[in-house]
Write a protein that binds this DNA or RNA. Sequence first.
RNA 1: GCGAAAGUGGCGGAAUUGGCAGACGCACCAGACUUAGGAUCUGGCGGGUAAAACCGUGGGGGUUCGAGUCCCCCCUUUCGCACCA
Length: 1180
Amino acid sequence: MSPESRGQKQKLGMKDVLLWAHGEPPKPGPLRIGIHTSTASGAEMAAERAYRLGANTFQIFSSSPRQWKPYLLAQSQCDQMKRLREKYGIGPLVIHAGYLVNLASVTPEFHRKSVKAFRGELERALALGAEFLVLHPGSFRGRSREEGLELAAQSIAAAAEGLELEKSNLTVLIENTAGAEFSLGGTFEQVAQMLEYLRPVCPAAACIDTCHTHVAGYDIVSEAGWNETMRQLDAAIGLKNVPVWHCNDAKHPRGSRRDRHEHIGKGTIGLEAFRRLLNDPRTEHAAFIAETPIDEPGDDLENVAILKSLINMPGTREASIASMAETRDLTARQPEQRELRYEPQRIEEKWSARWQANPALYAAEPHTSKRKKYYVLEMLPYPSGVLHMGHVRNYAIGDTLARHMWMRGYNVLHPMGWDAFGLPAENAAIKNQTHPKLWTLGNIARMKSQMRRLGFAYDWSREITTCFPEYYRWNQWFFLKLYEKGLAYRKKSKVNWCPECATVLANEQVVGDGCCWRHEETKVEQRELEQWFLRTTQYAEELLRGLDQLEEWPGKVRTMQRNWIGRSEGALVDFLIDGPAGPAGGKITVFTTRIDTIFGATSVQLAPEHPIAADLAAGDHHLRGKIEELVREQVKAREEGDVGAIEKHGVFTGRYAVNPFNGEKIPIWVANYILMDYGTGAIMSVPAHDERDHEFAQKYGLEIRVVILPRRVGEPPEANQEETPLLPYTEMDSLLINSGEYNELSNREAIAKMTHDAEQRGFGKATVTYRLKDWGISRQRYWGTPIPMLYCEKCGVVPVPEWQLPVLLPDNVDITLTGGSPLAHVAEFVNASCPMCGGTARRETDTMDTFVDSSWYFYRYTNAQLNDRPLDTATVEYWFPIDQYIGGVEHAILHLIYSRFWTKFMRDLGIIHNDEPVLRMFTQGMVIKGGAKMSKSKGNVVSPDEMVAQFGADSTRMYSLFATSPDRELDWQEAGVEGVHRFLSRTYRFVMRHAEAARRNGKVAPARGELSAKARSIQRKLHQTIKRITDDFQGRWHFNTSVSAIMELVNELYGAEDDIAAGKVPIEILADAQRSLVLLLAPFAPFLASELWEVLGETGDLLRHPWPEYDPALAKEDEITYAVQVNGKLRGHIAVPVDSPRELVQERALADEKGQAAIKGKQVVNVIVVLGKLVNIVVR
RNA sequence: GCGAAAGUGGCGGAAUUGGCAGACGCACCAGACUUAGGAUCUGGCGGGUAAAACCGUGGGGGUUCGAGUCCCCCCUUUCGCACCA
């Protein structure tokens, strides 16, 4: 036994009232009031204790509550119990069943044990003559609540079999519980239901615990709440059926479901609720029993006294408190050190306040700073109302990194802002009759305070809110510049329309099977509208090429962007129409990537919307009808999102086109698989060498002509082998046939030569096609940046002059989802004068896509207050590119491609010099619960607030990093958070116990000389841990293993407790270990680290303290354990001094006993020694 | 259909370069603390065996002294793209 635990025992002993109470005990009051009492030295002694405590009722365990082994009760003990109770007039006696008992358990073994144990409880209760036996209903994990309740009741019946309870004086009480996940009895109704099941079996009633009731969510604190809760209790169970109340205050807030008892009047319930309870005439018949902690000797006495003092007390809080103080004086306390308990709420509130009072702590130095800069950024949130776990994870990653970089001495820029424009604000406005601005700003305030509570270290002096004119005026300014450069233009076109949003969407905002990015169930419609576009295609090539340079971006994001841009190299070839031409002209230009197959073209296929298709059908009613049908079909398919699935079909136009390479006339068809918005909307169909063409030609019996062979150039054909490949044959690196002068060329050569020839002969040219389309930014909604354009009757489209910016978004607007942009109905906004001619003009009433706001916001952070320019070039020069950007992968194409586009445009404008905004991108994984995305409808949302209330911000944040590596999906498990909380408690207790060493010992260089094994081991582990964590920050970013490493270090320290107590660990080692531990913890658990830093006697903020350095010499093992393998199988271990030569290791390994046994009788053919790792002996 | 990533105890996950599989945490089990409740501390914990042997990283094959890790085939899951000419 360590000295520590010996001390513990003594302390516990002193808590026993029998050891210190002398003289006359306090007198009992008019009500039955008591407390749970220890049964040390025999159950009957509890009655004596109850008397000493001034109680006239009491509760005990009749056996050890955490062991299955039953307590053996002697008849003499039972007799003595009855005698003492009679003598002192104490009753009723309540027995609390052990808490291992779970009568609803799914585990058969466990259930069997539970029933048996409960049988024992009943027997002992009868023997002791107890009036009540209190039982927790159990946990139904693994089955439904209903089944759980039923099973529990059946189990009680089974346990009671043959005991004739109805003839005894014993009543089984079902206690309500804190309502934790899977536990039964969290509501009065559940208790009532169980009683219902139970009544036929034995006398049954309820025991109501005030703490459980409170944390389960019932309001018993306010007067109105109290009355309502009592009403519900009466309705569900009946107050007359509650013969016992457990009177406990609570440590945790209402609804927290955290079952932690507190001294009466000192918790979140307060005295007033107990006063109401004790003075309610409907509870007169009941016994009130406290189950409050005994932190210090006398606590039990005091709690009983307080309860008694509340009887007949006038109903004011002040009076209660005054009386409580009086009671406190009556019960003399023994001075004893408070137990060291980690209380995150206390610590975190303290440091939150301090940090908030000192915002300069997290402020970046100006760009003239001599220090190296580090810009770490998390994607700015949309202020939807509350933070969700995804946010917390995102910001925890960024904050941990930022804090680390601060400690590494960097000038860190770590800002935060709000993506404040957008639809939800308008929807909320319609629903709640509030203004979008008020709704948004309210949400921002709430989320900001959540961020502060979580301890994220942001430089709030740079905060931006995109719905403020100070910000969006620069959106308008940029728009004018784009317009000036010809990069913003207006055109009528087919656009994506989301009926739910009542606005247009960009292509990038259409996701999944043609659904809206905000409404993943809502199919996007196609509408023809006049819209503003930004010419993103202008930068298509650069956006694509730039991806190759972004080596520190996730490959996945780069691939997605590459696919999105969809570059395709090929050629345009003109096919002349045989016969008369219409207004669309006499030639069909096709786009092909395989001009080498043109001799195999056996038809030309037009998109149904192709103008030439209309020309060719001009005189043909029937054909026109067919084509229109195809158009409708395509529109429908697009809307339904199953474009690839529809069957290919088409119609022959009756006309022919001339293949310019061989003069061949081939039929012109219109087909549903040809898209007007890709390439030229027309193709040459080569059935032998294209899958779709092949399918189509087979259906309609079109000619399939092979022009490519799988053979390479120069390879002779294989004898007796059919040369025709399996069709369609689409591979490259092969040979042309049936292609006139191009026969025998490799297809790559043919592509070059034929393209060149087509160009020479004037019927074609090389070209590049992109899938990327221009960005449509017009939105027919209110809550966005007004597009700064005017329409003048005389001058046409006129930009708002720069000096008139910002075009303010008016406040007094009727928001509806119908009738186009709400701004169009605001006359003061719409009517303007033309800056060119002074005549009347109409304002553009569409607003900008919110992705415009987020395309350049991170530049604004570098100088958020600037009011004559969007940014300062020199400042941006210093801070950019962003060193680390962190966000969800869902923005891989949307936000991240727009941002890159914007950066390139700004660079060409000359106001910045970087080509890319982000050097290193990180996409964190989603947070899920129970295998599914968190959502309100699934009811699996974990609220950060609740986590923080239960476990503290440090535990919540640290768990989000510990559960898995940041790039993976995180399945939130509350038990895991609890585990981290436990670890932080351990850390807290260790430092609290040993801080004295650090306070006495200043900075001392750790001596190497004569260290005990344990001391050396601490030192070694410390330096190994510093190395691991430092490396993790620089490379892999596997913060889960960083946290593990800190846990290992703390475990090591705990393992050395005995040696520390025995003075075998030098003070400087202990002090150094603690200081470094706290520094390592600082990025992960900033609150606790700051608190402990202070406890260690340090001043100054942790963020400014240098990150600990590791000494490789100290991290080195003194002795290495080699694994000894024989033929690759582990056979034993040998310990060898570090840096032993290969020969020595080999010799020792061969001499090893276990190894010897394994190689006995065999011939050693080889011995492989891997220094520092293992020895493998190869035998035959 | 195409492309990418992943598959390791009851669970989340370690194993950084081909070198002792299962670090760390959760859950569980046993013990200590006659212990209200919540904790705390110590030990155990892939399967298998009395103990060994032996078997174990989705399945099958291969390379190697040695494979979770490399190669080939297959299965499953997740994500992305999907008439792109």
